[in-house]
Simulated assay, not measured.
Amino acid sequence: MMSGAGQWSDLSARLLSGLVLAAAGLGAVWAGGYYFITFVSVVTGLIVWELTRMVLPGDAIRAVLMGLLAGVAGFLAIYFPAGAALPTLLVPALVGYLWLPQHRRLYVPFVIFILLAAFGMMSVRSEFGVVWMFWLVLVVAGTDIAGYFAGRMIGGPKFWPKISPKKTWSGTVAGWIVAMIVGAGMMAVTGAGTWLLLLSVATSFASQLGDIAESAVKRQSGVKDSSALIPGHGGLFDRFDGMLGAAILVLIVMQVTGYPPGPV
């Protein structure tokens, strides 16, 4: 475990850039509709741009074009009928498979993962309303913040050292506890049943798995951060990896059980 001021050396940059990003994201969540869809689509395009740069360093043109394609596909899919949405989301993966000269087995699954997660976030906001989107944001943000501070203050055994050497069991469990607190708060606000506690913890764990999955891509690509877009955080992929994992889980839950319940 790091000691002294070194373990907090990135805190000020993380805090400032995190506040700016949070303000933009929460503003888009509150506005909903076209504004939120546009925000998610832009973030999606930038994340795919970062992913392409990681697997194909030096190929700037291909990275930009794949990012644009992903952003447009994400934007259009939410407006299409259900039968056309999934094929639209798969277009960037198909183009990547045909066009990229290497790392297709790494690239294609992650592009699908990113596009489906974007669709999940849009679906939560459009179908279940602002309150449930805020629940999702709070679970993911709470998990990340709790993991950051608990991991540095408590330390202890690593969760998965070969993939994510900084993630500890103390930070992981702290994230679950905070997620449960968020779920309890939502139960009080919405009258939802105790199932929400379990869903909140599962969503927290899914966000942590999203973080680990992105760490695996970075390790295989030999990079520390997905990009340098956000001071103290790296890139948007670094910042939104947890949200991607959480959104995928919630999208599956929505399809299988209908939860979360309707707009509040």
Rank of each mutant, 00 (worst) to 15 (best):
P87S: 02
V131T: 13
G142R: 04
G185N: 09
K167G: 03
S164L: 05
L15N: 00
A85S: 12
Q7Y: 15
I181V: 14
H233D: 01
T190C: 11
A60R: 15
R104C: 00
K158P: 00
G96R: 13
V108R: 00
G74V: 10
A22I: 14
Y35V: 15
L115D: 05
S17L: 12
P261L: 03
I252G: 01
G33D: 07
L106Y: 01
A247W: 04
F110H: 01
A216Y: 11
V253K: 02
M243I: 10
T257E: 06
M153I: 14
E214N: 04
I252V: 15
S221E: 00
D59W: 15
G191W: 10
G58C: 04
Y35T: 13
G147C: 08
P161T: 02
G175C: 08
G242R: 02
M254G: 05
A202Q: 01
R62V: 08
V48N: 07
T172M: 02
G32T: 15
I47H: 10
V173C: 10
V137I: 14
V55I: 09
L244W: 12
M153H: 14
L94D: 01
M153P: 01
F134E: 04
F134H: 07
L136Y: 06
W169H: 09
S12V: 14
D10C: 03
G232L: 10
G67R: 08
V111D: 05
S126E: 06
T203I: 12
L199I: 12
A192E: 05
V91E: 08
L51Y: 01
Y79D: 10
S215L: 04
G4I: 03
V20P: 00
F240W: 12
L198D: 05
A84S: 08
W132D: 03
I177T: 01
Y79V: 06
V124C: 01
V72R: 08
I47C: 13
S227R: 02
V55Y: 01
R53M: 05
